[in-house]
Amino acid sequence: MGFLNKVILLGNVTRNPEVRYIPGSGTPVAKFGLAVNRRYKSGDEYKDETLFIDISAFARLAEITGEYVTKGMPLLVEGRLTFRTWEQDGVKRSKHEIVAENIQMISRPSGQSDRSEGTASSENSQITDNYSGNDTMDENDIPF
Rank of each mutant, 00 (worst) to 15 (best):
E67K: 14
I53S: 05
T136D: 07
D48E: 15
G118H: 10
P109Q: 12
I142K: 03
E63R: 08
N16I: 02
P109G: 12
N5V: 05
L81R: 12
Q126I: 12
F3Q: 14
S121H: 07
G90L: 01
H96P: 00
T50C: 08
G26A: 13
V99F: 02
T136E: 14
G90N: 01
I127F: 15
N134Y: 10
K31P: 00
S56Y: 15
L51W: 03
G11V: 12
K47H: 12
A57Y: 00
G72Y: 06
M73H: 10
E18G: 01
R60P: 02
N140D: 15
F58C: 05
I98E: 11
T128E: 10
R108T: 12
F83V: 11
I22S: 02
T65H: 09
N16K: 06
S132E: 08
N37V: 06
N134V: 13
G43A: 04
E49F: 15
T85C: 09
L9N: 06
R115H: 01
G66P: 11
V77Y: 01
K6V: 10
Y131T: 11
P23E: 14
V91F: 03
F3I: 15
I106N: 05
D138S: 15
E63N: 08
T85L: 08
N5R: 05
N5T: 08
Q88A: 10
E67C: 00
